[in-house]
Design a protein around this nucleic acid. Sequence first.
DNA 1: TATTTTACTTACTAACTAGTAAGTAAGTTT
DNA 2: AAACTTACTTACTAGTTAGTAAGTAAAATA
Lengths: 203, 203
Amino acid sequence: MYICPAMLTPILPVTLPPDTRTRILDLAEELLLERGFNAFSYQHLAKELGVKPAAIHYHYPSKDDLGTAIVARQLRRLRKWRDLPRVADLPPAAQFEALLAVYDTHLGHERRVCLFGALAADFRTLPAPMQAELRTFNRELTEWLAQVLAVGRATASLRFVGSPAAKAAQVLTTLAGALQVARVHDETPFQVIVGQLRLELLV
Amino acid sequence: MYICPAMLTPILPVTLPPDTRTRILDLAEELLLERGFNAFSYQHLAKELGVKPAAIHYHYPSKDDLGTAIVARQLRRLRKWRDLPRVADLPPAAQFEALLAVYDTHLGHERRVCLFGALAADFRTLPAPMQAELRTFNRELTEWLAQVLAVGRATASLRFVGSPAAKAAQVLTTLAGALQVARVHDETPFQVIVGQLRLELLV
DNA sequence: TATTTTACTTACTAACTAGTAAGTAAGTTT
DNA sequence: AAACTTACTTACTAGTTAGTAAGTAAAATA
């Protein structure tokens, strides 16, 4: 492997221009979250990236592979985010706010829905590996929030009735849906729903 | 117009075998709610109905027309359901249960998502008239539930903090999302989430 | 009875779909 | 310098897409 000078001095993490493989994945993810999985093609990707469709097949032989790669990357990001000191070491109410901030970021990016909200409707048309990754993604996120809620209630910084697992499932479902409502109408209902969640959950 | 004998004696509402126009709409709605709008074609419909694709174009010239007809019919059904004496005359808590029963029916029909949940992700790829009908559908349903919640709280049969409008938006968003979660996993999370809603809302 | 309308079928088009095979130029390794 | 690998392009296939135009048989209407 060729070692470029930048690799020996990674003190300033120079953001290299992303390679084609990454640019494909980035754009495919963007289109997935903005238009749905069955609403973009290799031609769309190729045209926007200035390459030929076959170049995309070279990196991701089938659309199934591409879709699975998108979900797999989101799962890696979720785990990384969750384990980040600046997230993991926060008190529960702040962890909840950090979660809301993620959804707010989606809202800010052209009202993208979340991964789950983008794929749930078309779920049965998705390749099996993609379905499996999405299940894992949703399960891990729910388990994480359930733990946050449990600690939050135990330390009297969050308030709710019922089990932490049930409340976590309810809250995440609401957040996914809130981004969808924002897409259909505008940002207002999202803010209203998130305000309602805060009102009920924060002491 | 030809007046058939049945039209003169509509005492017993004989359920005629639905005509092709209706059968197309029924199947398209089914496929929309089970697979998404961009995941079925005129060929799929034609094959399953035993007609040629052109027969579908005869009744619904474009897929836009077909999609709009589906949403328009659901909107008519919503209004009819809402105004039914056996729904409109119920006390608020029972109206809320009637709403939950509708979502439960979706769950029982092959875990269909609701109209909103089926179309939100692909919203930007939908024809404008379809977008408009879906907005109206969601708005009217939210307004109806807000009214139910307001009366319910005033009569001490329902309990929640915040405005009825905010709570209505939150609850409907949660229900739409709950059907999506049921599709990705199984019926359990739907029951868990609905249980949580009941626990919080019913006195 | 003649005419028109309804509800289709047959036959077609042009565009798009995912995907493949073969070729190529530049970079990397031996 | 030779061989190999990477990252593509060109050229293609076979199937699917929405949509159209023309024809037709039966039913309804005048």
